[in-house]
Simulated scan of single mutants.
Amino acid sequence: MMDKTRRAVILLSGGLDSATVLAIARSSGFACHALSFDYGQRHSAELDAAARVAARQGAVEHRVFKLDLAMFGGSALTDSRIAVPEQASTGIPVTYVPARNTIMLSIALAWAEVLESRDIFIGVNAVDYSGYPDCRPEYIASFETMANLATKAGVEGKQLHVHTPLMQLGKAQIIRLGTELGVDYNATVSCYQADAAGRACGVCDSCRLRRQGFIEAGVADATRYVASPE
């Protein structure tokens, strides 16, 4: 049963991971307030997907926060002059958006305080994490420490927790878990360069991880592609 006194802010991108996190939070009894970001990313298909996921999974509300990280660029996701890589790479990829999780978690923290919530959920993952530094356990632990030092709620002893239920799971494990929780992955969009209809490119890092995850999970992948992936 959902307990409306146990509010949680869920960072919801519209992708596979965040949809699973929303399902986990709901199954844990939280009243889920979903938060997405229109941050100047390459496409809006993921925001359409986030709205679908929030509605289908019974979020109490879904808000989209607009900010323009494209003003700075520096990432293939926010600067059209930088191509999204279509081959596997090593190190921190050009799809890393500088400080993105720090910015988004900070805004989620502000909303959580207003909601008198002590819980934020985010779908970061240290296994299939594409090399992003702000998806690591030590980063999340440091942010949580900062949050409890920097907020009225934290100073007054109302400790806030940043939940990362997918942190140690591989993509196949995430898909199996989400399937058990009834997540409709057809509603999600993971591709870095999806078209206006939400069809995936099939060749970016996110598409490769997603496709391999479905194969390893033994779950049918109904992802719509611009062209059939090899």
Rank of each mutant, 00 (worst) to 15 (best):
E113T: 08
V84E: 04
N125V: 11
R81K: 14
S80P: 06
A112W: 06
T78E: 08
P98V: 15
D79S: 04
N101V: 13
S89I: 15
N101D: 13
N125L: 06
Q87N: 11
S117H: 10
I120D: 00
I120F: 03
V114N: 14
V124A: 06
I122L: 08
V94C: 11
L105A: 07
A126T: 04
G91A: 13
D79C: 05
S117C: 11
S80W: 10
Y129N: 08
L105H: 07
I107D: 00
R81C: 00
A99W: 04
S89R: 11
W111R: 05
R100F: 01
M104I: 13
T78W: 10
D119R: 11
P98L: 15
I120Y: 02
W111M: 09
I103K: 07
N101W: 12
Y96C: 04
N125S: 08
V127L: 04
S106E: 01
R118S: 13
P93R: 07
R81V: 01
I107A: 06
I82M: 15
N101H: 14
E116S: 13
Q87F: 14
A88K: 15
G91Y: 12
P85A: 09
E86C: 05
V94I: 14
V97L: 03
I107Q: 03
I92V: 15
V114G: 08
D128E: 04
F121P: 00
M104H: 14
N125F: 05
P98Q: 14
G123F: 11
A126R: 07
W111K: 05
G123Q: 09
I107N: 01
G123R: 09
A112C: 10
L115Y: 13
A112S: 13
L115C: 06
M104K: 07
G91E: 14
S106G: 05
A108Y: 00
N101Q: 13
L105R: 09
A126F: 06
L105P: 07
G91S: 13
V127I: 15
P93Q: 05
Y129H: 10
A110N: 10
S89Y: 10
P93D: 02
I82L: 14
V127A: 01
I103N: 04
V84T: 07
D79P: 02
Y129F: 13
S117I: 14
S80Q: 11
I120K: 04
A108C: 02
E113F: 09
D119E: 12
L105Q: 06
V114A: 14
D79I: 06
R81A: 04
I120W: 02
N125Q: 07
P85S: 09
L109R: 01
V84Q: 05
V127Y: 02
P93C: 04
A88S: 12
V84A: 03
R118K: 12
I120E: 01
R118P: 03
